[in-house]
Each structure stands twice: as structure tokens, then as C-alpha cells.
Design a protein around this nucleic acid. Structure first.
Lengths: 119, 119
DNA sequence: CTCGTTTCTTACTTAAGGTAAGTATAGGTC
DNA sequence: GACCTATACTTACCTTAAGTAAGAAACGAG
């Protein structure tokens, strides 16, 4: 509620001359764009994967964050958790998760066409 | 360098059975997916925009973060800063920035097809 | 039964984000 | 020409999220 005060007066003065940032898109980009989430998704788009396999395939991702991100993605119905036994767990994308493929591929194509310089 | 140690032994044991998360894509998703960046981009894709206009169109985005994100996007050659006079400034996407449109549209389509529940 | 592996969890430190206020420049008002 | 408002930031401070390290529970191998 804080930034609103900075902007409040302006927002009232500015009429709807232009489309405001769509709320659904905003929520999506804040979730999918969260740190590590994009990397986890591209790995899972290649097929179901064990916890530790995802960790191996995403450099510098710690167990703690991987566990946290997986829980978030599961809570949003993007990945499905399949416990083989209490020790072995497999994660797979749901239909909702697989529907992200075009977006991921488009971003990947952009990344390869316009590589980022330093990091 | 920290999480690497957690994973080091495993990474050595696991051969390249499956494609690892592509570095270029990873850098791109970490930049574009950064908080507020996606929202700023969708606003600028609609056309060049003043600093305060972007602020009006992205709810709850503070001046401080808008300034920070704009600097980052400019540093990566995604937006171009045009100072009309010392007080008035306009931001526009570069060709590299406009090339993000398919990715943004794909994510927007996903967001509208599979709305996110709570937030 | 001890050892190693896997999937987390808890406790703690550091980096990023959020809030509030201030700064510099320009233009307008009186 | 002192005073006010608007714009595009900047600085200082505090809170939340990310990163590090260590360990716990559930098996399976030997």
C-alpha cells in the first residue's frame, strides 16, 4: 500500500489513454519470472524429473530454493508431485505447466538471438 | 559458489543424459523475469512512454524501483532513454526490446488461459 | 546395524525489495 | 524574484526474500 501513495495523485490525473498492465499477465510474470522458476520449467518441459536431477541440471540452485519453488509451482497447479516412496520423488508438469512451452520457447529464441552481455 | 558445494558430487556423478538448462535462456529469464520488469515491458511494447506514465500504468511500482529497472534495461540495450529536456524523459524499446513481443504475448496468452488463483 | 543417498527442514547471514523523504531542474504565478 | 508545483530521479532506512550450512527422516546396500 506504500507505493500507491507516491502515485495516487498521478493515477487520478491520468485517464485511460493507454492500456494498463494487465493483472493476469502481471501475476504470471511475477510467478514464472521468480528466481530459478524459469530454469526449473525448461528442465521439466523436457520430461518428468527427480528432485536431485533438477538440481543437477540447474547450476547453483540450492536444495532449499528448489524445494521452495517446487512447492509454489505445485500450489499453482503447474507441476505435479509423485512420491515413488518417501525417499524418491518425481516432478512432472501438469497440462497447465506444459501450456507454458510456447512462452518458454519464445523467450529462449530471443535469448539466443540477442545474447545478454555480462550477466 | 555456495550451492555448488551442495551439488558438486551429484553433478559429477550425473552424466549428460538430458539437456541442461541453457545458459543464455537462464540469463534472459533472470533479467526479464525480475520483479516489475515484465510489467514495464508490456507497457513499453504499446509505445514509447514517459517515466511517470509507466509508473501510472504499473500498479504499486515505486519510483525507486522504476528508476532501477529502467537503468538495467537501458544497460542491456532493451530500452533507449531520450531526454526531451532535463525534466522530461521518454523511454522507448530498442529493436532488441521489441523482439521480446512474441515471448510477452505467449506468456500473456497463457496467463489468460490459466489464470492464477490467489496471488 | 552402520553407511550412504535422497528430499526436504531449520537456523542463520546476506542481498534485494519497499517506504519515505529529499534533490535538482524547469516552468508558472503573483 | 520569492514561492509553488511537476518531473525524474537519489539517498537513507527498514523489511522481505534469497543464499549458506547443517541436520533429520526414510529408505536400501552391505
Amino acid at each position: 500500500m506504500g507505493a500507491a501513495s507516491t502515485r495516487q495523485s498521478r493515477a487520478e490525473l491520468a485517464p485511460h489513454r493507454r492500456q494498463a498492465c494487465c493483472a493476469l499477465y502481471h501475476q504470471a510474470v511475477e510467478l514464472v519470472g521468480k528466481r530459478w522458476t524459469g530454469a526449473i520449467l525448461i528442465v521439466l518441459l523436457d520430461g518428468p524429473c527427480r528432485f536431485s536431477e533438477v538440481g543437477e541440471l540447474v547450476p547453483d540452485l540450492s536444495d532449499r530454493l528448489l524445494s521452495e519453488r517446487m512447492k509454489e509451482l505445485e500450489a499453482h497447479g503447474i507441476v505435479e508431485r509423485r512420491a515413488i516412496d518417501p525417499v524418491r520423488v518425481e516432478y512432472a508438469l501438469t497440462a497447465k505447466g506444459r501450456a507454458l512451452e510456447p512462452a518458454v520457447n519464445a523467450l529462449k529464441a530471443w535469448a539466443e538471438a540477442f545474447p545478454i552481455s555480462h550477466g
